[in-house]
Amino acid sequence: MKSIMETLAAQPIFADIDESTLTLLAGCARHQRIHAGTRLFTEGAPATDFHLIREGRVALGIYTPHAGLVTLETRGPGQIVGWSWLFPPYRWHFDAEALEPLATIQFDGHCIRGKCDSDPVLGYDLMKRFSTLLDADLRSTHLRLLDVYHRAPTS
């Protein structure tokens, strides 16, 4: 298994990051193996951590009484699951469930926030990197809202 430092360095969002920052990040992270069907987090629960997926897929969704977990989006290798650890009130807005056995790097959100608070330069750098992923998520959501595959009947 690759070390956490090696895995993080291979991720596009951490491209060109300096080694000291990577070391700080790795200090808040650990390897994790998760069984298929495991609920990674649940709507309303405290958002304390997040995962970088190395292997497997995760469903992000909302639980409904009649349909169970309605999947809004899936995440796979190289993608991050969970952003609520970054924003008050630090509670999950969705559920996340492992669709397959997962290998992830799990980050302690409180640990990373603490390091960013004490070093604004680091905090700004990481925020810019995380923002690119949030921006990509937002664009994907906008595209889905367009419902491009649905063609209204013409005369």
Binding site: R57, A59, G61, G68, T71, L72, E73, T74, G76
Partner: peptide, 10 residues
């Protein structure tokens, strides 16, 4: 997604 779908959504 739809009930029973376990593939990707996005």
């Amino acid at each position: 997604s739809a009930p029973g779908w376990t593939g990707d959504v996005g």
